[in-house]
Write a protein that binds this DNA or RNA. Sequence first.
DNA 1: TATGAATGAGAATTCATTCAT
DNA 2: TATGAATGAATTCTCATTCAT
Lengths: 193, 193, 193, 193
Amino acid sequence: MTPVTGTKRLIFDAALQLAGERGITGTTMDDVAERAGVAKGSLYYNFASKDKLFEGLLREGMSALTEALRASRQGKTGTVALEALVTTLLGRIKANTALAKVIAGDIFRTDRAWRETSFAFRHEALAEFAAAIDEAVPEATSTGATALMASSVFGAALVAGLEWLLFDEDRPQSEVVAAILFTFSGRLAPASH
Amino acid sequence: MTPVTGTKRLIFDAALQLAGERGITGTTMDDVAERAGVAKGSLYYNFASKDKLFEGLLREGMSALTEALRASRQGKTGTVALEALVTTLLGRIKANTALAKVIAGDIFRTDRAWRETSFAFRHEALAEFAAAIDEAVPEATSTGATALMASSVFGAALVAGLEWLLFDEDRPQSEVVAAILFTFSGRLAPASH
Amino acid sequence: MTPVTGTKRLIFDAALQLAGERGITGTTMDDVAERAGVAKGSLYYNFASKDKLFEGLLREGMSALTEALRASRQGKTGTVALEALVTTLLGRIKANTALAKVIAGDIFRTDRAWRETSFAFRHEALAEFAAAIDEAVPEATSTGATALMASSVFGAALVAGLEWLLFDEDRPQSEVVAAILFTFSGRLAPASH
Amino acid sequence: MTPVTGTKRLIFDAALQLAGERGITGTTMDDVAERAGVAKGSLYYNFASKDKLFEGLLREGMSALTEALRASRQGKTGTVALEALVTTLLGRIKANTALAKVIAGDIFRTDRAWRETSFAFRHEALAEFAAAIDEAVPEATSTGATALMASSVFGAALVAGLEWLLFDEDRPQSEVVAAILFTFSGRLAPASH
DNA sequence: TATGAATGAGAATTCATTCAT
DNA sequence: TATGAATGAATTCTCATTCAT
């Protein structure tokens, strides 16, 4: 995928910012054009439709996320890999909070025009977590529950990360990573099982 | 709060179903009226506006969730309390998946007319988790990070729960609870710290 | 016409007050019911429709106005009669400003359901002025312009009266009567003709 | 103020015609779009709302009226000025009867979104009459009643003018001017004072 | 005689999309 | 490659009226 630049970039950035504030459905093409500083016609010159625009946006964002997760797990195994994934995910959420909000608001919508794309990318992102879990706890693989565990870890980092950035933004990132990893450490539930 | 019954109930139920499928913004008042089997005018006779309708809906739903969480933690401490909370949250998500989807899609929107309501209730729900964490791990309290840990646990259960119900619905609930609790058990990250 | 009392009176009073503030079309039956302190059903128990309600209201108001004008002219002739009419009209505007506003806003509407009624009453009211003018200035009769002169005098008192009550209400009525009569005295236009 | 042309002009003209027939509240945006020969969306592309549309319309109309009155008084004093004002006002009412009806129906509404605009312009128009009266009858100035006299003259011409155009349209304008001025001549009230 | 919940046609407004320039 | 005026279907909301009690 060639990187998006120029007018398309302006439009992407404006659309993402707005969708982070108002959701995708709540963002109008007029809003996007105005914030991007281009005429409304330019939106349709550059993208076939609103759906295509946001599909492209999510595709780019989730693709970058997947890449970052994959890269951060590279060469690591088990526990270390899992920590790296959480740290990376949190870093991406901080770097692109608008995208994180859009994904959070859209991740369980099954009526979107781009649900195939969205589904595929989410699957890829979760697969990174699942792979790390499989390596760290081989015995879990057989239960078929690694996908659920991956969702659990992903959800923990996503929700805690947004909580941090929206309502507790002054806290240093290291503390947030520590708090999330703490919930996985077993110290919250020493006696269970 | 007196329970909502009669026409208001019909409207709430229809609105919740539809918003679970299409999101709040994607749900039209015509849709709601049709599914509720009432005339459009009745919507506005019973609720001042679309915003007020969904505010009432979320208020009721989040209030019930908070109550359920509070009740499930009652008389339990530490670890047992935390397990009860996760189990209850998962049970509520299963019992009212549409509501869970709506909440998940709305929880980080800061532009809603009902953001005060939404914020207050989310705070209350998270406070239950935070209280259990404070009891289970008193030493964590001082860091001020229990709120983040609460979000982390809440997010894990919410995202894994929806993943389950939307994409893996045949799996028995007990396995899902087990998978989520497993991620908190320390066995995913035995070497960290 | 038997005088309107009881619930009908409450409704008339509320409707007149509101129409004075917002115009007839701008006044809703809900507004009327609420201000009258009765249920909306009562409006339709007592009046066949909104149009009939306001027709009755205007009929009553204009009928009373016509009566008052007729009585005030009784036994007077020419100039004295004209002064009496202006004084009476101003008194009625002060006593029932809401009605005056409604009439002012409705007098040239030709699309009303009650235009026949309205037209007939306006004609009667203006006829009182016309009769006084005919007596005061017999030579004007032949030109057929007494109706226009009657409108002129009526308009002068109506507009000046409302200007007074809406924007200069502290001024004593006597001064207002004097100012209006002054405009008819010839001293504004000594050299004309 | 740059003159309104193009699509905005089409819309203004249609809206004014219709409001003259049905009043502002009785005129729908669908009606306006249809009569203007444009799509309904064009109304909202060119004006933010129905209120803004009619505010603009009244602003333009009252502004033109004020200008005409000011120009007609230019270089004249006293009586001559007053006659010129009445003649001009009557001419404007004839040239734009729809606007006159709208203004007449709206002038005493205190609930309009554009009441500030309306108030300011009415004040300016009346100020022209007041200035002429002050010059013609300097001794009246001290009583502070010139504003009322201005209303009186304005009201006489407005109501008589509309009476003429709506119910006696075949009469030549000169006769109408003469009838109105006759009411100010003192011959209606020779004995008063 | 009075009520108020329910109705549905209609009114205001929104917004993705088109198209002539 | 870009523009922005124009569109019309869809959407939210209003309100006179009905009717079972």
